[in-house]
Design a binder for these strands. Sequence first.
DNA 1: CTCCGATGTAAAAACGTTTTAGGCGCTCTG
DNA 2: CAGAGCGCCTAAAACGTTTTTACATCGGAG
Lengths: 338, 338
Amino acid sequence: MSSRITIKDVSRATGVSVSTVSNALNAPERVAEETRLKVVEAADRLGYRPNRAARILPKGRSFTIGYCIPAGRDGFFLDTFLHQITERAADVEMDIHLFTPHRGQSEADSYREMMRRGAVDGFVLSGTVHDDERIRVLLDSRTSFVTFGRSDLADNHSWVDVDGRAGTRAAVDHLVEAGHTRLALIGWPKGSLSGDDRASGFVEGLEAAGLSFDARHLIRTENEFAAGREAASLLLDAVLPPTAIVTVQDVLAAGVIAELHARGVRPGRDVAVTGFDDSPPAIYSTPGITSVRQPIEEIGRRIVEFLMHDLEDPELIRHSDLVEPKLVIRESSTGEPG
Amino acid sequence: MSSRITIKDVSRATGVSVSTVSNALNAPERVAEETRLKVVEAADRLGYRPNRAARILPKGRSFTIGYCIPAGRDGFFLDTFLHQITERAADVEMDIHLFTPHRGQSEADSYREMMRRGAVDGFVLSGTVHDDERIRVLLDSRTSFVTFGRSDLADNHSWVDVDGRAGTRAAVDHLVEAGHTRLALIGWPKGSLSGDDRASGFVEGLEAAGLSFDARHLIRTENEFAAGREAASLLLDAVLPPTAIVTVQDVLAAGVIAELHARGVRPGRDVAVTGFDDSPPAIYSTPGITSVRQPIEEIGRRIVEFLMHDLEDPELIRHSDLVEPKLVIRESSTGEPG
DNA sequence: CTCCGATGTAAAAACGTTTTAGGCGCTCTG
DNA sequence: CAGAGCGCCTAAAACGTTTTTACATCGGAG
């Protein structure tokens, strides 16, 4: 508990008033160069750093971005996502405040609470869903926030999203080019924003290739390994089974791979498979799964950038960015070791 | 920007002084029950929440735990780990503050900075390494912290760790029981604390089973998919190849699986494989990889608990907990679908 | 010479809490 | 019946900043 070094210590050390120290450090033009140097030197020497809370109080801002860790797991991207957001926030002197709803509290409530406490200036949201309560609440209270993922109210707030349609389309094009003509899709239940978006690229790709679309080759199911496996089983038992299976998430693709292995069907050689997100299940699968990678770095950078804009002037226009994903080709679609 | 509701508003609404409001909310025994009810009712009605920064200032504490997101990826556990820590912290009214070193700043510096700013009361550290600079700095400055993972200075600070030795031992026992007699280990380079710990369970298991230990059956390598695959290749090319390969991390095990597939060797049936951490590469592999699971919930709970103890009385004894991991058996070691 | 506008510094108020030191009116004790 | 003790409350100080306002000092213009 080495008693902390405050602005008073610097003031004492330099023989200059507290306000001058503050000015020297924050508004150099209001102070003689000589004085400024003296203050900066002393501050450095003493290891002075302005106390966070004390700074927040008169400023009326917290220099903090809130991120609510969702109750249900959000996939594997949290790792890289948070890392990215935290670094980009640090670039603009912002901190990241992690929180979860307290017990008995809705997620939307927890956002409200954070604002009331003045704990954060704004939020980053991920995993947007249809009719997202959080977004309604935040818009109502005129709070600054940026979402990763579009929403039904996307016109009213800033967002960054991956172009899921283009991603799936790229996967389909890749498969068509390799000669596949009977393609199937395993998607998520209707109503998921990003699920529908990703799925739309499938139909589009088929049309572009002049291929017919067989309704039996489209299965919607939960985003789980077992579900993916089951769906694959169904598809393969059909009269005219597909030669390529596109999925909207790597976990589903991993399930498909498992089913193929179990049937002695060689993934990549006999039946091609693609995933989405380029997450661990795709990277560490055998064979490696061709997948659509989201450029997390760019996403993080954009999100923080947009949020800062909104904080500076909440009345200004909303920003949005649909970033292009990139197809990472692996053995599951080519049959050839990457 | 709905101007915030402060304690003054509550004071005005109840006709009672600001200090009484504060007391009513924080020290009910210092106030008449009637007054307390009146205050609580008004506070509730107005939606009053004490301002975070304003509260921190006179208290001299920040009610915040710091966690530095490591520069190099830390594996896949960050997701669940942070989720757990954040929830347990919320239970005791603590918030989590995420940060990374600013550019040109060492990680240790960034910890120092957080303390100087009064931004946090203490830290949670993960990914401890040999001769960990962060730990030295934190001990020197008498800062409260708890590590996930032991350190060389483990006697001087609180920590929670998984018993890696016991975990690997369990894997070995499992394999021996299944009839394997020629076991190999793929570990990390010497000098890694948890790597050595996990590896030690291998030797111990062999000894307990009365099996001889062949030095050629021990390979140390980086924690990477390709490295695991290469190591497996080396092992399988030996004169007397092992029938079971134990690894200290799932990514290595996933690499082994890939090599087995490539050689037409059936994982689980011909050669058994085990991993460690029960992370996505193990769960979503085909076949699923038998792995050692760390009880993240318990770990998170313990870490926060220990940190709170230390914050309450920094002079008190250190706490430590070596939690028992659990072997999750999958097809990679049994050859039978889980 | 006086006055004026810069320029640089200091004093003080403000941010929203908690906490400490009383103060007032009771009741209880001796 | 005086004084101590108690229950309840308030005023004011404190936390460490930023910011606004006020005050010197100085050089130069009139």
